[in-house]
Amino acid sequence: MGALDKFFETLPETFDVAKLLDPDVEAIENTIYNGSTTYKYFPVSRRSFFSKPQVRFSPREALNDEFEMSRRWREISADGIRSYIKDKLSVSLPAAFASNDLMVSMLAENMQENGQVLTPEQKQQAETILASEQGKLFMQNQLVAAQQALSPIVDLIFTQLETNFDSMVNDVISPMGVFCVTEDALNQQMWAHYADQGRGFVIGFDAQHPFFSHRDGTTQRHLLKKVIYTNEHTQNFWRNPYYLFLVKSPGWAYEKEWRMLKKFKGSDEAILTVTPEVHLWNIAPDMISSVHFGHKYNETELVADMASMMATGARPRFFKLVVNRAEGTLEEQPIN
């Protein structure tokens, strides 16, 4: 961490950034998947999963909803964030220019980047100059110049951001993939749409596995986010950026979907010869807690796939789907 970063950490919070955000943002952040298992539907063509457990984080083009990651906000004005930045800098700039220690530390860092070293004697000399009346006057003039340039620079940056917003959004989306899971392993529509009309299978994952969280020191952040089903548009993109990734129309509500995002550059395997590209992540065997085979799953393949799954070190519970026509439901039958 550089001297400037350390300096900013010492500044008091002068503006509550939460005021810029819609209350839904906090609700989304605080909504945690509390179930023990989350489920992923697979077509029978993905039988390779049993011998090599992998999941795909899909690009926008591979998702089934044509309106995925599209415009669900009425405007893109960044006035609130622009004011926030100006407010923060109006406090931090005077404090920075008044800190001789910071100025000397930044001088030392700059010299080091250019292969030079600020000796203790030179450091003392710099501190003496800055503490002199002439040094104070010089820094005051520099501060005035910086303050005069602050507003037009910030305005220019945000004007360009708003002008090129669609391109910026695409740049954000393009390098990222979505892993979609659900709360329900026995949903008839999802078996029809995503598991080959009962010929495929559903994998249950341990929802509390480290794969679904990020730990930074003592802080743990849950990565699964609940999809919002609504036709409403947020007033301003910046009020709720989650609308870009987590909103679908109410017609998809039966999916009970949760999502996780990853950048493609971290994938364990990439297939770049197809469109859209395929990016796969390896799954730890202990993360697999259950397997549901569809009611039309090939019995011979079922036995072989169970053996392949066990050979990876996974110890899931196995189930076969049964159609209860009298009740109009799908039921799970344990495989012993």
Rank of each mutant, 00 (worst) to 15 (best):
residue 245 F to I: 03
residue 336 N to L: 06
residue 69 M to N: 14
residue 4 L to V: 11
residue 75 E to M: 10
residue 213 S to F: 01
residue 232 E to R: 08
residue 146 A to L: 01
residue 232 E to G: 08
residue 67 F to Q: 12
residue 287 M to P: 11
residue 195 A to N: 06
residue 323 V to R: 07
residue 315 R to P: 08
residue 313 G to P: 08
residue 243 Y to L: 09
residue 234 T to F: 12
residue 9 E to P: 01
residue 294 G to Q: 02
residue 45 S to Q: 15
residue 249 S to P: 01
residue 204 G to D: 01
residue 33 Y to M: 07
residue 296 K to R: 07
residue 280 L to C: 09
residue 128 T to Y: 13
residue 4 L to F: 14
residue 200 G to H: 04
residue 91 V to H: 15
residue 233 H to V: 05
residue 96 A to N: 03
residue 174 S to M: 14
residue 47 R to L: 08
residue 249 S to G: 06
residue 172 V to Q: 06
residue 234 T to S: 12
residue 56 R to P: 03
residue 137 L to D: 14
residue 132 S to N: 01
residue 4 L to M: 11
residue 282 N to H: 14
residue 178 V to G: 06
residue 312 T to I: 03
residue 209 H to Y: 08
residue 251 G to H: 14
residue 83 S to G: 04
residue 299 E to T: 08
residue 207 A to L: 00
residue 287 M to F: 03
residue 304 A to D: 10
residue 293 F to Y: 02
residue 223 L to H: 09
residue 7 F to Y: 04
residue 265 K to Y: 15
residue 44 V to W: 02
residue 231 N to M: 04
residue 328 G to H: 07
residue 87 D to C: 09
residue 184 D to E: 12
residue 200 G to F: 03
residue 120 P to R: 06
residue 32 I to W: 12
residue 92 S to E: 11
residue 92 S to C: 14
residue 261 L to A: 09
residue 315 R to L: 10
residue 51 S to I: 08
residue 66 E to N: 10
residue 59 P to T: 00
residue 204 G to M: 02
residue 243 Y to C: 00
residue 72 R to F: 05
residue 23 P to W: 02
residue 321 L to E: 04
residue 256 K to Q: 12
residue 53 P to N: 03
residue 290 S to V: 00
residue 67 F to G: 03
residue 228 I to R: 05
residue 223 L to S: 08
residue 186 L to Y: 04
residue 9 E to Q: 13
residue 151 S to Y: 10
residue 127 E to F: 03
residue 145 A to T: 06
residue 173 I to H: 04
residue 330 L to Q: 03
residue 250 P to G: 06
residue 224 L to W: 08
residue 90 S to V: 10
residue 254 Y to F: 04
residue 310 M to K: 05
residue 217 G to C: 12
residue 307 A to M: 02
residue 79 D to R: 13
residue 201 F to P: 05
residue 312 T to W: 00
residue 127 E to A: 05
residue 68 E to T: 09
residue 138 F to V: 11
residue 3 A to I: 13
residue 263 K to F: 11
residue 293 F to A: 08
residue 187 N to Q: 14
residue 202 V to I: 06
residue 251 G to I: 07
residue 274 V to G: 00
residue 273 T to D: 07
residue 334 P to N: 05
residue 88 K to C: 13
residue 36 S to W: 11
residue 323 V to Y: 00
residue 292 H to N: 04
residue 177 G to P: 07
residue 232 E to I: 05
residue 174 S to I: 13
residue 225 K to W: 01
residue 175 P to E: 02
residue 305 D to A: 09
residue 49 F to A: 09
residue 50 F to H: 05
residue 113 E to K: 15
residue 22 D to L: 07
residue 317 R to H: 14
residue 292 H to I: 09
residue 48 S to Y: 04
residue 143 L to Q: 04
residue 314 A to I: 08
residue 141 N to M: 15
residue 236 N to Y: 11
residue 41 Y to S: 04
residue 245 F to R: 07
residue 225 K to G: 00
residue 268 D to E: 12
residue 43 P to L: 03
residue 317 R to T: 13
residue 267 S to M: 06
residue 112 Q to S: 13
residue 124 Q to D: 03
residue 329 T to Q: 13
residue 18 A to L: 15
residue 210 P to F: 07
residue 104 V to A: 07
residue 302 L to H: 10
residue 135 G to S: 02
residue 289 S to V: 15
residue 201 F to L: 07
residue 85 I to D: 10
residue 273 T to C: 11
residue 170 N to D: 13
residue 43 P to G: 01
residue 291 V to H: 11
residue 188 Q to A: 15
residue 283 I to C: 00
residue 295 H to L: 11
residue 48 S to I: 00
residue 188 Q to K: 14
residue 153 I to Q: 14
residue 89 L to C: 10
residue 274 V to Q: 06
